[in-house]
Amino acid sequence: MIKKTLLDEFLHEAESTRKLLKAIPDSALDFKPSEINWTTAQLASHISEVYNWYDVTFNQDVLDMGSYQYDKGDISKAENIVAKFEENVANAQQAIEKWDESTMMNEWKMEMDGNSIFPPMPKIQVIRSFLYNHLYHHRGELIVYLRSTGNKVPGMYGPTADEKF
C-alpha cells in the first residue's frame, strides 16, 4: 500500500518536474542569483540527478558517496538536461516498482569513506526527505530562477499567473 502511494506521488510529481525542466530556455542556463548559487543549468542538472539516487535509496541500505559517480552529461543545452531527466526518471520508476516495502524500516545511511554523512534513519524517512522533499525544494528554487530571468512558469498544482484558468 505504501509502495503504491509512493509510486503514485512519484508519477504525478515527475510530470510536474518534467514541465518545469522543459520550461527552461537555453538563454537562462548561465543565470545564477548570486556568486554562491548554482547556475540554472547546474540546478536543473541536480534535480535530474536526484532521480539517479532512487535505486540505491529504495533498494540498498547504504549510499557510499566516496565511490558514487554520476555522468551529468552536457548541460550546455536545456534539452540535454531534460533527456538526462527522462533517463533517470525511468530508472527511478523501476526502482520503486521493484522495491520490497517490507524493508521500509531498515536503517539507511549515507557514508563517505566509512564515515556517516548524516545519522542513519529508517529508509522510509530517507525516501520522503532525501528523495521526494529534496526535489520539491529544488523545484521551488528553479521557479525563482525562471521568474528572475523573465521566463514563464508552468502550473504544477493548478494554473500560475502565466496561465489562464
Results as ranks from 00 to 15, higher is better:
67 S>C: 03
150 G>K: 01
33 P>M: 10
130 F>H: 10
7 L>I: 15
150 G>P: 01
45 S>W: 00
155 G>T: 02
30 D>M: 05
165 F>S: 15
160 T>F: 04
159 P>K: 03
17 T>A: 07
25 P>D: 13
49 E>S: 03
141 E>A: 06
27 S>L: 07
91 N>A: 13
52 N>T: 15
68 Y>I: 06
143 I>M: 08
9 E>M: 02
9 E>A: 12
153 V>Q: 05
29 L>H: 05
117 I>M: 09
38 W>E: 13
92 A>L: 04
61 D>C: 02
30 D>E: 11
81 I>A: 04
97 E>I: 15
159 P>D: 10
125 Q>L: 05
2 I>Q: 07
70 Y>T: 14
112 M>Q: 11
80 N>G: 06
92 A>R: 07
30 D>N: 13
23 A>Q: 04
128 R>H: 05
64 D>T: 03
108 W>M: 04
120 P>H: 02
89 V>H: 05
69 Q>I: 07
110 M>I: 06
163 E>Q: 11
116 S>R: 00
93 Q>I: 13
87 E>A: 04
130 F>V: 11
157 Y>F: 13
150 G>S: 10
35 E>N: 10
144 V>I: 14
69 Q>D: 14
68 Y>D: 06
2 I>K: 09
47 I>L: 13
142 L>H: 10
103 T>K: 07
100 D>A: 12
131 L>E: 01
77 K>R: 13
74 D>P: 04
106 N>L: 01
90 A>C: 08
70 Y>F: 09
28 A>E: 06
33 P>Q: 08
78 A>R: 00
135 L>G: 07
49 E>D: 07
13 E>D: 14
7 L>E: 14
92 A>H: 05
6 L>D: 12
43 L>D: 10
77 K>I: 01
24 I>R: 03
165 F>H: 11
94 Q>L: 13
113 D>E: 13
28 A>W: 05
112 M>P: 00
112 M>T: 14
51 Y>R: 07
115 N>G: 06
142 L>W: 03
14 A>L: 03
80 N>C: 08
104 M>Y: 05
32 K>M: 10
145 Y>D: 09
35 E>V: 01
127 I>H: 04
22 K>Q: 13
160 T>K: 04
49 E>P: 00
107 E>V: 08
129 S>N: 10
100 D>M: 07
54 Y>D: 02
152 K>I: 13
112 M>V: 12
8 D>Q: 13
145 Y>L: 00
54 Y>H: 08
165 F>C: 03
139 R>D: 09
96 I>G: 05
47 I>F: 03
107 E>S: 14
101 E>C: 07
128 R>N: 14
27 S>D: 14
46 H>Q: 04
141 E>C: 00
104 M>G: 08
136 Y>V: 15
50 V>N: 02
148 S>P: 04
114 G>V: 04
101 E>N: 08
56 V>M: 05
40 T>P: 05
52 N>A: 14
4 K>H: 05
12 H>W: 11
133 N>Q: 14
113 D>K: 09
